[in-house]
Each structure stands twice: as structure tokens, then as C-alpha cells.
Simulated scan of single mutants.
Amino acid sequence: MLISQTKIAIPIMQKNEEDILKTAEDYIKKEADILELRIDAITDATSEMIENIVDTIFFPIIATNRTKSEGGDFLGSERERINLLKTCCNLKHVEYIDIELQTDPCLRDYILGKCSDAEVKTIISYHDFEKTPSVDNLLEIVNQEKELGNIAKVVVMPKDLEDTISVLAIMSRCDNTIGISMGELGSYTRLMASKFNSPITFATGGDVTAPGQIDIETMKLMLNMDLMDEGDLLDDI
């Protein structure tokens, strides 16, 4: 049986603990491989609240606390934002912590050190909601990310089909890299992730958290169809 090595993550964007736990249960039933806990979406998030949520969900989690400049909702200071991520370093079910490449270098190095001490893997992310940088610039960004963390992530906005192909070019050249072209034009890049052995792709369980997201049911169906097609080809050889 062929199984995609690309994990499907679903972001949780609910604002309070009760809704987060209900949503997590729903997404687990829908067979997400990993959940992204968007701390920036939580109203008045505290370390104690995050710890209780993660322990109760009892499922692999990406901890993300996204800045306003990169599409997030966190309203506090940068130090407060990083301190909430620090809480996640020692939580058993947090598999990854997402850290923006453009975080202040001192704070970025601080949280990276805490992740290293706790042996928690990191995703170093970059978002551009206006354009797609050139392939050379994207490669430079990914190389910087990979020097810092375990997985590189670039999320960019295409203006034409060529821009979406630039994202595929990055995934074809770089291992341990998540490449996403946003919007309807780039939505297919989320499905192509498995073709390039991307470690994670992102779907939605109902709430759309980024332009061009695909619901998990469609994502799983399309990935399985691709794998079956590959299996048929192998059988014919």
C-alpha cells in the first residue's frame, strides 16, 4: 500500500479554549496528521491556557504565534509573543514550533536556543502576501531558514502561473521545505507537496485561514488518487 510521506496539517483558529478543543476533536476525526495551534488567534492567551489546551488535545501539534506583518493576529509585544512560544518548548505533544525568519534576531536566537535545549523541531517561515520573489531570492530565503531550523517554509502570493512554478522549483531543489503559492492560482501547489517530498502541507477542516486552502477531504482524496496512479505505473513496468 502506497502512503504519502507528506503530513497534512490543519490550523486551529478558534478564539477560546472550549471551541479549540471541540475543533481539534473534529479535525482529528477527519484524519489530520498534525494540528497547527494558532496561538495568535486565542483571546488573551496565557501560558497556563496553552499548556492545558495542548495536554487536553493529546495529539501532534505545530505551535504558531503569527505576527500581524505575516498574516497573524497577535496584539502583544514581540517579547510576549516569543514567551508564549517558549511555553510550548516543554509540552510533550508539540512536535514543531514555527518561528518567522524576520523575527528580531535576538528574540529569534533566544527561542531557537530554547527549542534546541528541549529538542523540539522548528519550522522557520517566511510570508509575502503581495508577490512572489524570484527563484534566486527564494533560494536565498530557504537557505537562511535551513541554517536556523529543521524545516524551511515559504508562503508567497502569485501574480501569474509562472510565479507558482517558481515555488515548485524551490521544492524540487530543497529538501525539508514547505512551499506554498497562495490564492486560487496557487492552490495546486499544496497538492504537489507530496510529489516533492515536502514534510508538511496545509489543508482546512472548515475555516479557511489562508487564500487557496483546500479542505482535508479533498486533499486526502487527491493525494490518494496520485499515489494510486503512481502504483499503477509501477505495476506496468
Rank of each mutant, 00 (worst) to 15 (best):
K7Y: 02
I8S: 08
I10W: 12
I12W: 12
Q14L: 14
I20C: 04
E25G: 03
Y27G: 04
A32K: 04
I34C: 06
I34G: 02
L35G: 03
D40S: 10
T43W: 08
A45E: 03
T46Y: 05
S47W: 01
E48W: 10
F59N: 08
R66N: 07
S69Y: 07
G72I: 09
G72M: 11
S77Q: 12
R81Q: 06
K86R: 13
K86T: 12
V94H: 01
I97G: 05
I97R: 08
I99E: 05
D104T: 07
Y110L: 15
I111E: 06
K121Y: 05
I123K: 03
Y126C: 00
Y126H: 00
H127P: 04
D128C: 00
D128R: 00
K131M: 03
T132M: 01
T132G: 00
N137K: 07
E140R: 12
N143R: 14
K146Q: 13
G149N: 05
N150V: 01
V155E: 09
V156R: 02
K159S: 14
T164Q: 03
L168E: 06
D175M: 11
I178D: 06
G179W: 01
M182R: 03
K195Y: 07
S198P: 05
S198H: 10
F202Q: 05
G212M: 02
G212S: 03
T218D: 07
L223I: 14
L223C: 02
N224L: 03
D232S: 13
D236N: 13
